[in-house]
């Protein structure tokens, strides 16, 4: 009986962890996805969120607003996946820096690995300073958002 209860509790704690992770992933996707849309609208960057949906999307849509909104939805899905990966493997790192580095790594994966593979957009060298700085910043902040939220929730931090 007691054992069963303990198991149940463990199960509950586990589902709580994944529930929290899901909520962080969704919010990260919504907030930073919409922000990347805003940066595109303000013409800070040449690439809108539609690139995230490009492999699955009718090519006519890619430069239209519908395409970008669908892209935001895909961005949300990706950020949920990224959050789950962080919770699974990187939860033990404390402080904001782990999240920032995670963001930079994600940026590297998307623009140096997936981009040449799936032809999402121009190579990084040709994107120009504006677009690149906006993209790096977005990934850094998304990583920080995901990493620090997870790390504060599941670690007890007592420095200073």
């Amino acid at each position: 009986m007691v054992e069963k209860e303990g198991k149940n509790q463990q199960k509950e704690a586990k589902s709580k962890i994944w529930g929290f992770t899901l909520s962080i992933g969704l919010s990260a996707g919504v907030i930073w996805g919409l922000l990347s849309l805003l940066a595109y609208y303000l013409q800070f960057t040449d690439i809108g969120p539609s690139i995230y949906a490009k492999p699955f999307l009718n090519p006519d849509y890619v430069l239209k607003w519908q395409g970008h909104f669908i892209g935001v939805v895909f961005f949300i899905v990706y950020s949920v996946i990224a959050t789950f990966i962080y919770t699974k493997f990187l939860v033990k790192f404390k402080g904001p820096w782990a999240g920032i580095i995670y963001g930079i790594i994600l940026w590297g994966i998307v623009f140096f690995l997936l981009n040449p593979l799936l032809k999402l957009t121009k190579p990084v060298k040709e994107l120009g300073l504006n677009t690149n700085s906006v993209m790096i910043s977005l990934y850094i902040l998304t990583g920080l958002f995901i990493g620090y939220s997870i790390s504060v929730e599941f670690n007890t931090e007592d420095d200073s």
Partner: peptide
């Protein structure tokens, strides 16, 4: 210019 603004905001948030 734009990189300054974007990185400025990022640094501020960090």
């Amino acid at each position: 210019k734009i990189p300054g603004f974007v990185f400025g905001v990022t640094i501020l948030l960090i």
